[in-house]
């Protein structure tokens, strides 16, 4: 069940939680990720759905948050990482098809693994609990079917 042990998962999760908690306690913002796509699109699309006031107001700090994620992972790669710079072997068509559905689905659902999973569950939101159960259950079934079809990696 835990071939790599539990420590990296639990410690990593706590560090993620401390980042989310720090941002919330100092600024009152929820450090969630999938809105980043919509707010960033407000720089490129004139459509009303992207030009909402809330998107314009949030796009700066959401881009800053995304930049932080990249820097944080880079710092780990240069310091504690056992593997150093690393590239996935998962096939490109999976990244593209999966990415399309992730982008569409998280925006329709108003949340992703961080929005519903961390900030939503952290806010004791039942809606987020149902969302997490649904997307995790569906993802487990999907990944298992893909594996059964012999797709690897």
């Amino acid at each position: 069940m835990f071939p790599l042990g539990i420590e990296p998962y639990l410690v990593g999760g706590i560090i993620v939680g401390v980042g989310v908690a720090l941002i919330y306690l100092v600024t009152g913002l929820h450090a969630t990720q999938s809105s980043f796509f919509t707010t960033t699109l407000s720089w490129f699309s004139k459509r009303k759905s992207f030009q909402k006031d809330s998107n314009i107001k949030e796009r700066g700090w959401r881009l800053t948050l995304a930049t932080g994620l990249v820097i944080g992972a880079l710092i780990h790669t240069l310091t504690l990482s056992h593997t150093g710079f690393w590239t996935t072997s998962v096939q490109l068509w999976r990244l593209i098809l999966g990415g399309l559905l992730v982008g569409f689905g998280t925006r329709l659902s108003s949340g992703c693994t961080s929005g519903h999973g961390i900030s939503g569950l952290g806010s004791l939101s039942l809606t987020s609990l149902y969302s997490v159960i649904v997307f995790m259950g569906v993802a487990i079934v999907t990944a298992s079917i893909v594996q059964m079809l012999g797709v690897s990696p």
Binding site: Q33, S34, F36, F37, A66, L69, V70, I71, G72, A73, L74, I75, H76, T77, S81, F85, W86, T87, T88, V90, R94, L95, L97, G98, G99, L100, L101, V102, G103, F104, G105, T106, R107, L108, S109, S110, G111, C112, T113, S114, H116, T127, Y130, S131, V132, V134, F135, M136, G137, V138, A139, I140, V141, T142, A143, S144, I145, V146
Partner: peptide
């Protein structure tokens, strides 16, 4: 919210990517 979660779940299951982990992954090269 629920239909979006289903669609997100299919995409996550196909690719192993979610928004935050994909963006952070750029920092690992």
């Amino acid at each position: 919210i629920i239909i979006g979660a289903v669609i997100f779940g299919v995409g996550w299951g196909i690719s192993g990517q979610c928004p935050g982990s994909a963006v952070a992954s750029l920092g690992t090269g």
